[in-house]
Amino acid sequence: MRTRTVVGALLNFRGEWQAMEPAMHKEPHFKPPQHPVLYLKPPNTFNRDGDAIVLPAGVEQVQVGATVGVVIGAPASRLSEAEAMGFVAGYVPVNDVTVPHTAVLRPPIKQKCRDTFCPIGPQAAASRVADPGALEIRAWVNGELKATNSTRNLIRSVPRLLAEVTEFMTLEAGDILLVGVPENVPLARAGDRVAVEIEGVGRVENPIRAEGSPA
């Protein structure tokens, strides 16, 4: 299956939500979002395990966005939570690379949609993952464990997120839904090697280089 679209969810980990909640009550919204806050990682961002993440000119560091990608197995539209898991083909480790920013409650397109900014690891079949709501997530920089979390801390579970997203958009076979990036995101620079590991799913690891430097 070919991935056409990667859809990501912001503010879907409890710790991330709690950190951002005070700003939610200020201008311009004055209240927390009632629906998933979503963004896209377009095809120019797609990257493979082992290939370089390229820092654009003027960007000195990036966030290592460790997350779980839910791979869709069949066209999914207006799913209920009860049927949603039947449309999941598998899971992949994904590094949702992002330029650090201060945007709140607005999709940071310029910071997330740079070339090479979405390394996607090997897929584990859905049958191999007993509970997508209990997956350990780890982020590594130069072989050092920098952040850990778990999908136990999701605000919207995988089936709920699938139901809410497919309420208004069809996800095709091969598309990937990112469940969210936890709080305390580690930073990395050119010359570093970063990895995202999802226990029971797999690992994606990539070097980082500056734009224009030798591959």
Rank of each mutant, 00 (worst) to 15 (best):
R2G: 12
R2W: 04
V6D: 15
G8E: 07
G8Q: 07
A9P: 09
L10G: 13
L11E: 14
R14E: 14
E16C: 00
E16L: 01
E16D: 11
A19C: 03
A23I: 03
H25R: 10
H29N: 14
V37S: 15
L38E: 11
Y39I: 03
P43E: 06
T45S: 15
R48L: 03
G50D: 11
D51E: 14
A52S: 15
I53Y: 07
P56Q: 09
A57S: 14
G58M: 07
V59I: 14
Q63C: 02
Q63T: 01
V64E: 15
V64G: 09
V70C: 04
I72R: 04
I72F: 08
P75V: 02
A76I: 00
S77D: 13
R78K: 14
R78Y: 03
S80P: 06
S80K: 04
E81G: 05
A82E: 15
A82F: 02
E83V: 06
A84S: 07
M85S: 05
M85F: 02
G86C: 01
G86S: 10
V88R: 04
V88L: 05
V88G: 03
Y91A: 02
Y91W: 07
Y91L: 00
V92D: 09
V92Y: 09
P93Q: 10
V94H: 11
N95P: 00
D96G: 00
D96I: 00
V97L: 07
T102N: 14
T102G: 05
A103H: 13
V104D: 11
V104A: 07
L105K: 07
L105P: 03
K110G: 06
K112G: 04
K112I: 00
C113V: 04
D115W: 01
D115M: 04
D115N: 12
T116W: 03
T116D: 11
C118D: 12
P119W: 02
P119E: 08
I120E: 11
G121Y: 02
Q123R: 12
A126F: 02
V129A: 10
A130R: 15
D131N: 14
P132M: 06
P132E: 08
G133C: 02
L135F: 08
L135A: 03
E136F: 08
I137S: 05
V141Q: 13
G143T: 04
K146H: 06
T148F: 06
N149P: 00
S150N: 12
T151W: 11
T151D: 09
L154A: 11
I155N: 13
R156G: 08
R156Q: 11
S157R: 10
P159D: 10
A163E: 15
E164T: 01
E164S: 06
V165G: 12
E167N: 11
F168P: 13
L171N: 09
E172Q: 12
G174C: 04
I176W: 07
I176M: 08
V179N: 11
V181W: 08
P182Q: 10
P182M: 07
E183H: 14
N184C: 01
V185Q: 15
R189Q: 08
A190K: 11
D192F: 06
R193E: 14
R193D: 03
V194L: 15
A195Y: 06
A195R: 13
V196E: 08
E197M: 03
I198S: 05
G200V: 02
R203P: 00
V204A: 03
I208N: 07
I208Y: 09
A210G: 10
A210F: 09
E211R: 08
E211D: 12
G212P: 04
S213K: 13
S213R: 14
P214Y: 01
P214L: 02
